[in-house]
Each structure stands twice: as structure tokens, then as C-alpha cells.
Write a protein that binds this DNA or RNA. Structure first.
Lengths: 111, 111
DNA sequence: AATATTTATCGTATATTTGCGATGAACAAA
DNA sequence: TTTGTTCATCGCAAATATACGATAAATATT
């Protein structure tokens, strides 16, 4: 990716939003998140069973969602229970709201 | 990217949202869009001048934003004037709102 | 201790993305 | 007609992403 010039410094919000968007930039990851939104939390195995993809592939997607901060995994050996990371989820929500000029109210479903 | 199984069919919303998110998944493209949100429309050259990137690189980013439908370019030879594509912008807005469970009201700034 | 279950990680192959310079196309100005 | 301006596209290189099977780690069960 050759960059002769120094790396660009964007505003923190810009960098952060791009990071979240990148994590959301794959249909499998959107689908995983939708599932976690509904079921609140579930084990890797349940997610694997939803998709016609290898277990290692799903694990990879979960890792990326975790790296972006959108989900977190709770150890429950030998299982791992995943759920939405609400703090970062709300952060992402705010960033997208600002970006799209949305009047953000009633941001949470019933809290 | 070896895929032995048939390609997965996701819900249309899921596919579409992933496509928009992917386009938003780079800080330069976020910054370009923020600029277009402010200035309403501008020529390629003006955008090129903002970033320490080659003209061809910016052109590439503009192409991706155009392919995703988020912007459109109006020929104004030899210049090209870019602006937000409001229809698709609103579509993207809705998808993200649904996804993040946002009560979408007052979606436009003053229309 | 041996086996089964669950999940992450490694190694690999291929595709896509990101960046650049060079070139070409389209038009305006001289 | 020649020259300059503006922008997209081509061709290339390097990095990253996506997918898979195989394997390892961690624990429960037998």
C-alpha cells in the first residue's frame, strides 16, 4: 500500500467511525450482530450453526467484531458466550447519528 | 477466497447495509462525505486539495462512494461536480437507524 | 487416564483494497 | 492547431480481507 507521504491524521471521530463501519462492512457480520441483538447473548456454536460457513470463518468474524469493540465474549469453558458491547455500541450509534444528522432520542429500547 | 458451498443469500437489507458500511469503512471516504455534507457540492480538484493523497487515489475513493450510491457526479467539463446522493443517503440512514434501533425523526436538517 | 466437546489460532490460497505514477479523454483558452 | 486544465482509468505493488482445513488449548465426561 505504498505511502510516500506521512500517514494522515484524521479526526478521532472520523477514524473511529471508519473502524466501526469497516467492521459492519460484511453481510455475515451484520447478520451476526442482528442475531445478538435479538438473542441478547449466545455461544459461538449457535452462531456457527446459522451460517453455511466453516467454524473457523465465523470465529474470524467474531474476532473482528470483538476487535472493533462491538461485541464481547465471556469465557464459559469450554464455551464462549458472546453479546453486544453496549458501551461501544452506543458510541457507534452516536457516531452514525451525528454523521447522518439524526436527532438522536430514545436511543435505547427500554432503558 | 475459496467458497465450496454456494454463495450465501442474506436479506436484502443486510446486503445493502453491508455495502454502505463498506463504503464508509475508510477514514478518507468519511472525510470526503463530511466535506460534501458541509459544502453541498464541489469539484474533484477541491477534494484532492484537502488530502495529502494522489489525485488518482482520491478519484478511486470517489468512484467507490459513487458505486455505493452515496454520492453522484455531475459533468461540468472538464470538471466534475460531486454531491451527496440524497435518495441513497436517506436509504443508508434508515438502514443504520433500524440497525441501531434509533427512533428516526426529523431526519432532514431543515426540509 | 482417555475421550469428547468447544472454540481459537495457524497456515495457506485467493480476492479485494489501497496507493502510486503514467497515460488518455474531454474540453477551454491561446 | 497547440497548449493547458481537469479528471478517470490503467497497470503495478503491497497490504489486507475472506475463506478453508488442520491443529491446539481448555475443560467436561467417561
Amino acid at each position: 500500500m505504498k505511502r510516500t507521504l506521512e500517514t494522515i491524521d484524521y479526526h478521532e471521530d472520523t477514524e473511529e467511525m471508519a473502524m466501526f463501519a469497516k467492521a459492519l462492512g460484511h453481510p455475515t457480520r451484520i447478520a451476526i450482530l442482528r442475531h445478538l441483538e435479538k438473542s441478547c447473548s449466545c455461544f459461538t456454536g449457535e452462531i456457527v450453526d446459522i451460517f453455511p460457513l466453516a467454524q473457523s470463518t465465523i470465529s474470524q468474524h467474531l474476532k473482528e467484531l470483538k476487535n472493533a469493540g462491538l461485541i464481547k465474549g465471556e469465557l464459559n469453558p469450554p464455551k464462549v458466550k458472546y453479546c453486544i458491547d453496549n458501551d461501544n455500541w452506543n458510541k457507534a450509534k452516536s457516531l452514525f447519528c451525528d454523521f447522518f444528522d439524526i436527532n438522536e432520542r430514545n436511543t435505547s429500547c427500554s432503558v
